[in-house]
């Protein structure tokens, strides 16, 4: 099956980024395709390359980047939500791209299931 994922909350603040990531990993392990992860609301903070967690903690941003690199998961950050929160091309982590809300609608149309993770 083809999955679309929506992440509405920031990393480290709320568990939704972790749950969404672990869901993606499990889906891929089961042979499904995670076609796109769309980051909205504070979820856009998942894309900041300035993120530096303590060494003994998980690196949520790099984890997403790796998912893009290894499995071609399209990581899309909502432009309007991103600009509101200071996420721009210049501080965008590897594998993410900034685009419009149309990409979220497209994920709903083109995937078999769209799963929302948020607060």
């Amino acid at each position: 099956m083809k999955f679309g994922i929506v992440v509405n909350e920031g990393p480290y603040q709320h568990q939704s980024s972790d749950t969404a990531y672990l869901f993606c990993k499990a889906a891929i392990e089961k042979g499904h395709e995670v076609w796109r992860v769309f980051f909205y609301h504070d979820g856009v903070n998942n894309a900041s390359k300035l993120t530096e967690p303590p060494q003994d903690d998980r690196h949520i941003v790099n984890r997403w980047s790796k998912l893009n690199e290894e499995h071609g998961v399209d990581l899309v950050v909502c432009v309007a939500a991103a600009l509101r929160r200071g996420i721009k091309e210049e501080n965008l982590a590897k594998g993410f791209r900034i685009s419009g809300l149309g990409q979220l609608v497209e994920a709903g149309v083109k995937t078999d299931r769209l799963i929302v993770f948020g607060d």
Binding site: M1, L22, F23, A26, A27, E29, K30, H32, D112, I115
Partner: peptide
């Protein structure tokens, strides 16, 4: 587990 979570989203037609 997370695999079971994935399974539930596939066996249900919507969520």
């Amino acid at each position: 587990d997370y695999g079971g979570f994935v399974e539930l989203t596939t066996t249900n037609k919507n969520c």
